[in-house]
């Protein structure tokens, strides 16, 4: 029997509370939602997994990462390349090298391969990234994003660039993604409260101090980086397994900023913040998009306003940074809202 510390026990309680919220939203959508709404909520859950993957590294090591959408893309493309049936690949990728068009695997094996490929790539890149701090590290992650995107666009014989990579069988439905999101929440929360997570957060507060106490900063950052990449790969797989088509465009700057805004609004230091930010922005943006189309509200015919959602997203980032730089949740997790701390 593993003995859990105080914070780990409260972490499990917090994860359970968040899981309950996720289940309620998922079940409510399944029973009452239209097809369109189910799609919408599904993508919110995929973004939630992305934000959680981002939180593992960014929230604990507190180094701004801009390459997360690239890792999501790697996971999505790797799984898609494995799982798509041969006959479809023969049509869509006639010039694929290395016999990529001559095989297809079952979804579970494909997902496993995609996760391993992403993890190995992340590990190799991570060896360099963890040695950098603040702006330098951020630029290198930016470079990773640009390079991966350029490869997606350049190797059209494998990735089809900006055209749709189609024919991916639909494996997941909303229930699956809710389950996976809950798993991701539990993993993130347990990592945060684990020995590694605490040491990593300490190193973010005071790098020199933590190192003097014997914290192996590079090793811990690397662990968080690879774990984050694995979660991002899972998010990519969920994306590909539901939509059936992918292209390079969704894995670039727009998505990076969208998910970054979610994490910042909720508060990147906590898992609760990641969940809260994702749902606030996902559902908030949907409302703004409705206004964008120029609806008739209370008898007033509003004009069409393309770009309103972008303005809202940017304003959320600016206002959060100006008014509450640590996000809505700050350092508080969900259970601390209910339980008074006794020490």
């Amino acid at each position: 029997m593993i003995r859990l510390s105080q914070s780990q026990r409260s972490g499990l309680v917090g994860a359970a509370l968040l899981a309950a919220v996720l289940v309620v939203i998922g079940v409510a959508t399944l029973y009452f939602g239209s097809r369109y709404q189910i799609r919408l909520v599904y993508s919110a859950y995929v973004n939630l997994i992305v934000v959680l993957g981002l939180q593992v590294f960014m929230g604990n090591a507190r180094i701004t990462n801009l390459s997360h959408s690239a890792f999501m893309g790697i996971g999505a493309y790797a799984a898609a390349l494995c799982v798509t049936p041969e006959n479809i690949k023969k049509i869509s990728l006639p010039a694929a090298p290395w016999g990529l068009a001559d095989f297809s695997l079952d979804p579970v094996l494909s997902a496993a391969i995609a996760i391993v490929i992403t993890a190995v790539l992340a590990f190799l890149l991570g060896l360099f990234i963890v040695r950098l701090t603040s702006i330098g590290a951020t630029i290198v992650t930016l470079a990773v994003l640009v390079i991966v995107h350029a490869v997606f666009l350049y190797r059209t014989d494998i990735f089809k660039g900006n055209q749709a990579f189609f024919g991916i069988p639909q494996v997941f439905d909303l229930g699956w993604v809710v389950g996976i999101a809950i798993l991701a929440v539990v993993v993130c929360r347990l990592f945060r409260e684990s020995r590694w997570g605490i040491q990593l957060r300490a190193s973010a507060d005071d790098e020199v101090g933590a190192a003097a106490m014997g914290v192996q900063i590079y090793k811990l950052r690397l662990i968080a980086w690879v774990l984050g990449a694995v979660i991002l790969a899972v998010a990519g797989i969920c994306y590909a397994y539901f939509l059936g088509t992918i292209s390079a465009r969704p894995f670039y700057f727009n998505h990076v900023f969208l998910t970054l805004a979610m994490l910042i609004l909720g508060g990147m230091r906590t898992v609760t913040g990641a969940v809260l930010g994702t749902f606030l922005i996902s559902f908030g943006l949907e409302g703004v998009r409705y206004l964008e189309t120029g609806p008739v509200l209370l008898g007033i015919d509003l004009p069409e306003a393309l770009g309103l959602s972008g303005i809202a997203l940017g304003a959320v980032i600016v206002l959060t940074m100006a008014l509450r730089p640590t996000g809505i949740m700050g350092n508080r997790e969900i259970e601390t809202l209910f339980v008074r701390k006794t020490f």
Partner: peptide
């Protein structure tokens, strides 16, 4: 954030 707002 400012950059996104202005672009839009």
């Amino acid at each position: 954030g400012v950059s996104i707002v202005l672009q839009n």
